[in-house]
Nucleic acid binder design. Sequence first.
DNA 1: AGTACGTCCTGATCGC
DNA 2: TGCGATCAGGACGTAC
Length: 311
Amino acid sequence: MLPYVFPGITMPELPEVENTRRYLIQAGLPGSTFTGVSVGWANALKTPPLEDFVLGLLETKVQEVNRRGKYLLFPLDPGLDPGVKSGAGTGPGTSADTGASRGAQPCAPTLILHLGMTGGLRVQPTDQAPHPMVRHTFSLYSDGEGDRELRFIDGRKFGKLWLTDNLEDVLPPLGPDPLSQDFTPDVLGRTLNHRTAPIKALLLEQSIVAGMGNLYADESLFLSGINPMRPASGLSQDELERLRGCIVTAFSNSLEAYDAARKAEWPDPPMGLHTWSIPRKDGDPCPRCSGPISGTRIRARGTYFCPRCQR
DNA sequence: AGTACGTCCTGATCGC
DNA sequence: TGCGATCAGGACGTAC
């Protein structure tokens, strides 16, 4: 049913990245210190150059695991001697000093990861055999734990790494996060107001809905009964509200499934627990009306919808 | 500004 | 049976 990605991993969209964040916290990554760094695929490292990246990470301690859209953020405690490693004058934990200029807001040095299409993270004992597609490895020291590694699995090498003390240098403009209160029909309506492109294409833009990806876009449009090829600006207020609600529902349901798995006997659930309402196969019966599902492409993305149920 | 498309990547799967 | 072509898509760069 799901498009094949790689064993144990499916396309990381918002619920998968949020699940990864919660998994990393549960695994005790916050409070762990990086004692070694291996970047196995140089193209993944966007900034800074490798040597600075490694030196900037070594002996720093992960403060917390945050998320913005599909980006994972690891603010770092530079260690015993704050100010030496980072250019920032203030110590760790100070969220932002009241710098003179707006815009460039220095923060704690922050490791940023994007899982791309086939990325996944695992915290595992060093002596556990790694997944064959581990590309990057971060050795960890954590109190009360043996030697462990944060392993970045990434089959197709679309994942990315950054180390920065200014998030705005790295992160693109991101729209509201559907798991937050900011994601209202008004905000959605305003951003789509004058856009004539197909709603499906625009839903995939991270500046409109942070964290949206191809599968959840199809799912949300199916749940809300909206044809993916409709020009975005043509959606009525009622449709916008329905769409917003279905996006939230799709994301929340998926995240609940991950939470349940993690809290039960499955502390490290693979991505892709979510079951989809709409089949991703041309001609398969629509679960609602039994008519044939249409498969097409919008902006070169596989798109599945029910022509009868989605007007 | 808004829209569309090519590019990067690998391995499962399809067709011959 | 084997081998080459095709397909999958997030984000970015570029062109129109």
